[in-house]
Write a protein that binds this DNA or RNA. Sequence first.
DNA 1: CCGTAATCTTTACAAGGTGTAAGAAATGAC
DNA 2: GTCATTTCTTACACCTTGTAAAGATTACGG
Lengths: 225, 225
Amino acid sequence: MTPRQAPHRRADAQRSRAAILDAAVRLLNAHPDTSVEAIATAAGVTRQTVYAHFPSREQLLTAALDRITEEAVAAMDAAGLDTGPAAGALLRLLDASNRTAGRYPVLLQKISLLSVDPHTDHERHAPVADRLKRVIQRGQEAGEFDGRLSPDWLVAVTINLGHAASGEVDAGRMSSEEAAEALHTSLLRALGAVAPTGTPTREEGVPPAGSAAKARGAKFRNPQK
Amino acid sequence: MTPRQAPHRRADAQRSRAAILDAAVRLLNAHPDTSVEAIATAAGVTRQTVYAHFPSREQLLTAALDRITEEAVAAMDAAGLDTGPAAGALLRLLDASNRTAGRYPVLLQKISLLSVDPHTDHERHAPVADRLKRVIQRGQEAGEFDGRLSPDWLVAVTINLGHAASGEVDAGRMSSEEAAEALHTSLLRALGAVAPTGTPTREEGVPPAGSAAKARGAKFRNPQK
DNA sequence: CCGTAATCTTTACAAGGTGTAAGAAATGAC
DNA sequence: GTCATTTCTTACACCTTGTAAAGATTACGG
């Protein structure tokens, strides 16, 4: 999406842009309602310079969020996705992304408010979700995880259980170690993991879950008006 | 916490307050940045009347959120917490709260931004979480759920898996029926439940809670009973 | 080096939102 | 009917976003 056909962006422009983004991430994480003015002065520039780089406050926030997303993705890629059992890789992945995300707790909440448009939101999370999905599919093909549940659903389960764990830590109800252990247990169960000591699944080629038990189906309708 | 020593609140004051709250819930759900002015006119009063009832915009938002929390709690209480198997009760509970929450998608996201203070946030969610906790503990005592995981953690798991399901529906990646079915499967697995409809998990096939928790503290286990 | 274009700063303005204040008008309670 | 409560009107101060144009600086290419 970022047009790389930049027609000679001057060096000090890039420096300003980086300084603004740095300040934005830092200040917004401390207080999500920080004004553009405060960000500008923290970056050593004027408010108008900020507007020269980012047309609106919202786009500045978006750029800041993209920056930390990149950081998280880099951490995930350093965690070794394709080596060892999928269960271990998945836990490493989750740990890496949570560690990065844990550095910007306020920003990460802001993300959900920014994206009124679900498509934009999905696009931002896509690089993270894709990596999880890859590992999950690998685990399913290897028989480590239940192959009848859709990978997309399992990605959502993984992300949200990760949120549960970091939420309990943030709330002070669990230590990091307790949360990691609990996440480990519950995530592997939810994924239908088999014991790591062999015992391959006998079932194969079963279609994704959802065809059975239609009787309870209507209970989750989403009333709209 | 709400001082019930209301010294003669006049009838029209209550009417105004209700009208303001109604308008606030309605408009804020459509657009979270609605101005106090717009809410006031929609409620048929002036901005100053709103400020007479709610000292600040933030407290107005808080009151609106408390109102829909009450609504969700009422729906949960109507779902029959203490009858039948805990698994069924839990799913009914989750369904009731999600149905209410699904009516105010935008508001519910705003909630996370409002509460910079985690204590306030926890207090708001407490009535919902307490009901889930009660059912989960009942299930644990009856042997339906794994009693070695702490109820607090399982509450967090339940809430966040519920979020996963409604998130997938909102994003258009799953139908309501698919999401309900997936939630059913994954939640019961995470709780260590005995599978109801021929799920592949043999009773001893699932890794027990402490399988990987030997060396570490594993304090997330249920301390009582 | 030096000219030129890009970039930043200064200054200024318009619009809209929040929060406060005081007096007048109305409405309900008793 | 009286009286306290509630609401309305009008007004103000302050902050924030976004736009605009001028001049001052700085970097870049030759």
